[in-house]
């Protein structure tokens, strides 16, 4: 997989290395900017409230406030 990418990058070795670095940085940026913020609420650290304002009798599970 990585070998395939390497072979398909243009230029000499230096240019390839530079492009690889750019790819990695771009990938990490995408992760931090979009993917992780989406995934993070699926973890339990966000549930700090007691159920409230959910209307009478709607006692939901341990997920607390719906999100």
């Amino acid at each position: 997989m990585y070998g395939w990418i390497w072979r398909h990058l243009p230029g000499n070795t230096w240019l390839k290395a530079l492009l690889s670095l750019a790819l990695v940085v771009g990938f990490v940026f995408l992760l931090f900017q979009y993917v992780f913020p989406w995934a993070e609420p699926l973890l339990p650290f966000n549930d700090v409230t007691v159920n409230e304002g959910m209307g009478a009798g709607s006692v939901s599970g341990p997920t607390g406030v719906a999100r």
């Binding site: 997989m1 990490v28 992760l31 931090f32």
Partner: peptide, 22 residues
């Protein structure tokens, strides 16, 4: 092997995100 490495890196990055970046 490459897949395993990639997933491992992803997990490490995610931990960094949760513990540090947030």
């Amino acid at each position: 092997s490459e897949l395993c490495l990639t997933i491992g890196t992803l997990i490490v990055l995610f931990v960094v995100y949760v513990l540090f970046w947030t």
